[in-house]
Simulated assay, not measured.
Amino acid sequence: MIQAEIKSLLREDISILIKIANSGKHYLCDCGEASQLTVKEIQSVSAVFISHTHIDHFSNFDGIFRHQIGSGERVVICGPKNIHHQIEARLKSYTWNLIDEKAIEYEIREIISLKEINVYNLRPPHWNLELVKTQNFLFEDDQVKVDFAILDHKTDSIAYMFKEKDSVTFHEEASGFRKGKWISELKTAFENNDTDLEIQIEGAAYKAADLFHLLTRNQGYRLGVIMDHAADKENYEKIKAVFSEADLVYIESFYKDSDQEFAKLNYHSFASASGKIMKECQVKEAVPIHFSRRYTETDVIEIETAFYKAFREN
């Protein structure tokens, strides 16, 4: 199951760690100041997802990189237009005469549009960008697939949906057969919708479709992270297209309702607006995050109260 931990304290800049149960892989959403993020956790991060590069979401990239260098690993970084140039500039601002060229490799995925992702490589010591390809998906590995929405924050702000891979359950008690490799063959046929595949069981041949009743598909957990965005209709339509019926969504609620004029001016959301769109998306659980640093703990309680009232009201 996918789990998320907010690694930033009140008045620190936002950073969220995504963990996969029973896996050593971690994913990081944004690189704001995060005093609760440990070196061990950073060294387990295999992919970083940047919403946008305002300083409060990107300032700690160097600190993250500091603890990854020397790992020899390939780390994926996903982000909005020009993210490749911004990372290149950060890395080239240091002197690298003592570093090995195999110390680390970054694969940067620049989001141009929903179906256009430019993929670049960056390696030490010169950190020269290499355009590798353009692809039509953002990220997928053995654990998760990541979808996204491009929101307006007076710049592109990427909202990410982490989708755990579906699993298939075999109902042994209903089969009447002994266990064997046929079960994995049946699952593969089920996942590929290969209805005509012949499955050999105890010396007899069966059509895969006739055995599909022994299997159940379990939808993977869906966890979303929606950072800075204007509280407007166009953004909400994009959010609904990606995050509807998610299991859990963390969503920016930067301002109190009483400060929503500031929200409009600065292309941010506010408490009840974020709660309402989560209700309209029919998400199972929603958590307000990323509050203005002007606010006290009492103000944050006010934001959370307004958010949950809008989210849960009948």
Rank of each mutant, 00 (worst) to 15 (best):
E5P: 00
E5T: 10
K7P: 03
S8A: 15
L9A: 03
R11M: 11
I18N: 04
I18A: 06
A21P: 00
N22T: 07
N22C: 10
G24K: 13
D30V: 14
C31S: 07
G32P: 08
E33A: 14
L37D: 08
K40L: 12
K40S: 15
Q43D: 03
Q43T: 12
V45P: 13
I50V: 09
S51E: 06
S51M: 05
H52G: 09
H54E: 15
D56W: 08
H57K: 15
F58S: 02
D62K: 15
D62W: 11
D62I: 11
G63Y: 15
I64M: 06
F65D: 13
R66W: 07
V76R: 00
C78K: 13
C78G: 15
Q86M: 12
Q86I: 06
R90S: 06
L91F: 14
K92F: 01
T95A: 10
T95S: 08
L98V: 13
D100E: 15
K102W: 04
E105Q: 14
L114E: 13
K115Y: 10
I117T: 08
V119D: 05
N121I: 14
N121E: 11
P125H: 11
H126R: 12
L129C: 01
V132P: 01
T134H: 03
T134F: 05
T134R: 11
L138T: 00
L138D: 07
E140K: 13
Q143G: 02
Q143N: 13
I150S: 03
L151I: 09
L151T: 04
H153G: 12
A159T: 09
Y160K: 09
Y160T: 09
K163M: 11
S167Y: 06
T169M: 05
E172A: 12
F177Q: 11
I183W: 02
E185V: 08
T188R: 08
N192K: 15
N193Y: 05
N193W: 02
T195L: 12
E198T: 10
I199C: 06
A204K: 15
Y206V: 09
A208N: 07
A209S: 15
A209P: 00
H213K: 10
L215V: 05
N218T: 07
G220M: 02
H229E: 02
N235S: 12
K240N: 12
F243G: 08
Y255V: 04
S258R: 07
D259G: 00
D259F: 01
F262V: 10
A263N: 06
L265N: 13
N266I: 01
Y267T: 10
H268E: 09
S269L: 05
S274T: 01
I277C: 01
K279A: 10
K279L: 03
K284T: 07
K284N: 06
H290Y: 02
T296M: 03
T296A: 03
D299P: 02
I301H: 07
E304H: 08
A306F: 00
F307T: 02
R312K: 15
R312C: 04
